[in-house]
Design a protein around this nucleic acid. Sequence first.
RNA 1: GGAGGGUUGCCUGAGUGGACGAAAGGGGCGGCCUCGAAAGCCGUUGUGGCCUCCGGGUCACCGUGGGUUCAAAUCCCACACCCUCCGCCA
Length: 433
Amino acid sequence: MLDIRRIRTDFDDVLAALARRGDTATEAELRRALVLDERLRKLVAERDELRGRINALSKQVGTLRREGKTTEAEQIQEESRLLGERESTLAAEFEDISGLLRDTLLRIPNLPAPEAPDGDGAEDNVVREIVGFDPEAYGDHQRVPHWEIGAELGILDTERAAKISGSMFVLYRGAGARLLRALTQLALDRHTSGTDAYEEIRPPSLVRTDTMIATGQLPKFADDAYKVERDDLWLIPTAEAPLTSMHRDEILEEADLPRRFTAYTPCFRREAGSAGADTRGTLRTHEFDKVELFAYCTPDQASAVHQDMLTRALAIISDLGLAYRILDLCTGDLGFSSARTFDLEVYAPGCDRWLEVSSVSWFSDYQARRANVRYRPSGAKGTELCHTLNGSAMAWSRIWPAIVETHRQPDGSVRLPEVLHPYLGGVTAIHRG
RNA sequence: GGAGGGUUGCCUGAGUGGACGAAAGGGGCGGCCUCGAAAGCCGUUGUGGCCUCCGGGUCACCGUGGGUUCAAAUCCCACACCCUCCGCCA
């Protein structure tokens, strides 16, 4: 959520920044917020003035009653009652308008960072770096898509997944399932060790509506998420949702920042509107596993934390022997709540596609304002909003196919990267049969 | 799912419809004392909104949302969460 005071005082700048996203609807929303805010402030002044008078009168009633002056007390009661009627009218109007204002603000996306490159959509994202990629270097044995490899080696069973749960679900089996578990463990072990360790969290996968609002999934993107109607709970689309709400409505100490978490969770996405896309394999599914990196920090720390997450994500991809590239997302492709995002894509030779495996985002104070997460600056009075950041430490549904395709050998087996060996119980390659 | 007990500030914990933004103690911070410290003593210590002649003024917040009342931490209703026991389960 944007700061209404900033919209009020800095309207043209805010408008210009939002215009970079190329979303023409936001200008109307922004103007609407301004109008509502204006009305709201008039209402508040009037309502509070009335309340002040009522409070004063009520005190008088108390005094008079104690002194036994019943008649005078009753006169003032009547006067106060009449003011009370006007007050309730104003209060009701205030509730209406502030509800409308909040709803309007919740639907306005974050301002892109000034450094984020301009652009209209995915095609304008800026490739910052390509590592380990040589299109000529791949052999024919690597030009086999992972769903074929998966069926051939018996490690991916899409038909049974469909029988059990329908389309866009996957079932890994045997060494395929083990590979997934090894990847999760590798990521968690790495991020939770060393001097700058992230704290490991295993959050709930079902969350309240407020939790989904804090990160920006709701109210605007309700159709993308699964909801358990009966209990009024949502299935998380990413660990970012529960993690952002961990310190919701809390005030942290500056000395405790940054607070950094890593979490393994399943992620659930309805993928509404993507019917027919990526129907084969594991690339787009309703449920997938992910290890997430997450941080609350001060504005000053944000840039370093952002870089740290990116470095961590890259290190794992690189150790898995995959070719990758870093994209600096342009303003037109930036997520709703994000100010700046770097996407990491790995190359999958079998599908001949770059697959997004990690998205490392800085949300400035946008989510923190929604979630009301603040910190107390050391040695100063008052509170400031935190900044939040997160990055997928890895989306296994995209890494898994890249590994299987990249490391396929001429004999059809798949060699497993060395970094995973400690987690594979002695298995170093997956063979047929 | 059933029965009971709870939810007050940084913590513990009091609170009879009116003097309660809230006793008391602890903790934190500042000061006195001291060579220094402990002890002791004194002071101070929540978050937000709106307005501001920047001195301050005012409103809200005692789990959440409603209601009663001139007036609600206090009374009524609903809900959420926590604890104990039973049931069920991993």
